[in-house]
């Protein structure tokens, strides 16, 4: 096999400033948790010096899905619920691109649920950020699949009637899932470390961010904000860490080996606490990219011969 063609064109090293990653001025509400994710991704791009022209942020539709517009990279602000198939398609023949997926709880867990499940199974090299505000923001306060039982919304003014699904238990239940983590928007250092670990993992890294929506679901994360002991900080040398000073702020900590899937599932099932950090990582999961990138290096001449041979097979 010849070396992969597009890599030959890798531009000369160029240093990028933080501002090189900033696109349009974000138009999210003040205090919206989405800002926190944007800051972390921009900082990650800078720290990793990702070439903006080789970085693609794919999203669906929703407040959260406006994300790509606020980056100065390539972006794809597509259809409600359909970010995953697009991102997989982008990555399929372009392993040289750094692909991020940004999605909301309606986008990912309702209309896009089928794609979400299969994207986790395909395990292509994507960094996925689910901004979960427990509500539909853009369309103004409807029940989402993660809305808690009894929460009042415009579609359930007397309270949501079905218990929410847990994105973590779903993700951990999918065969070939390779990276599941959770963080909270009000802990920027942890958001950054989580997204960084996700980016560094090869495979589909699924990060759920508990995201405040001061506009429609202002109070929902008040409890863990006011009482940090409701956050269960998972510690491990293979996990996501924080500097010791910051770690002190989390009184409720446990050691959890991210290779331990059963324990990860047990933690995700708990309804009394919010797990924080890396639940699960499997570096040996099958990556569908290994299949989709087949034949990429095939020289034109060889290809032409192969096409002629294919036609010849039908000659009578």
């Amino acid at each position: 096999m010849q070396p992969f063609k597009i890599l030959d064109l890798e531009p000369h090293e160029q240093h990028h400033d933080p501002k090189d990653y900033a696109g349009a001025l974000p138009r999210w509400c003040p205090g919206c948790g989405d800002h926190s994710a944007l800051n972390a991704v921009q900082k990650l791009c800078y720290d990793k010096q990702l070439p903006p022209e080789r970085t693609v942020v794919v999203s669906g539709i929703g407040c959260s899905s406006r994300f790509p517009h606020y980056m100065n990279t390539y972006g794809f602000h597509g259809l409600h619920g359909r970010a995953f198939p697009v991102a997989c398609g982008v990555k399929s023949r372009r392993p040289d691109l750094h692909v991020f997926v940004v999605t909301g709880d309606g986008d990912c867990c309702a209309i896009g649920a089928g794609h979400w499940i299969h994207a986790l199974r395909y395990n292509m090299d994507l960094t996925v950020i689910l901004l979960d505000n427990n509500v539909y923001g853009l369309t103004k306060n409807q029940t989402s699949p993660t809305t808690r039982l009894g929460e009042h919304t415009n579609t359930h003014p007397r309270g949501a009637v079905v218990p929410p699904l847990s994105p973590l238990t779903v993700a951990l239940g999918i065969t070939n899932t390779s990276f599941v983590a959770q963080t909270v928007d009000w802990q920027p250092a942890h958001v950054y470390n989580t997204i960084r670990a996700a980016y560094e993992h090869r495979g589909t890294s699924f990060v759920r961010i508990l995201q405040r929506c001061p506009h429609f679901s202002a109070h929902i994360f008040d409890a863990p904000r006011e009482d940090p002991s409701l956050l269960l900080f998972m510690e491990h040398e293979q996990g996501i860490s924080l500097e010791p000073a910051k770690l002190q702020k989390f009184p409720n900590r446990m050691t959890h080996d991210p290779q331990n899937l059963d324990e990860a599932r047990a933690i995700a099932e708990r309804e009394d606490i919010y797990p924080l950090g890396l639940l699960y990582r499997n570096e040996n999961a099958v990556c569908y990219d290994d299949f989709t990138s087949r034949g990429l290096g095939m020289p034109q001449a060889e290809r032409q011969v192969a096409i002629r041979t294919a036609i010849d097979k039908f000659v009578i």
Partner: peptide
Amino acid sequence: EQVGGIVHQAEDEIAAIGFAVGCSYAGK
């Protein structure tokens, strides 16, 4: 595969075209 191509069997028709759109957007 003999000519360097792949068939992606998606989870449904929406995903099938979404994947194709992503691929086309990225230049192929």
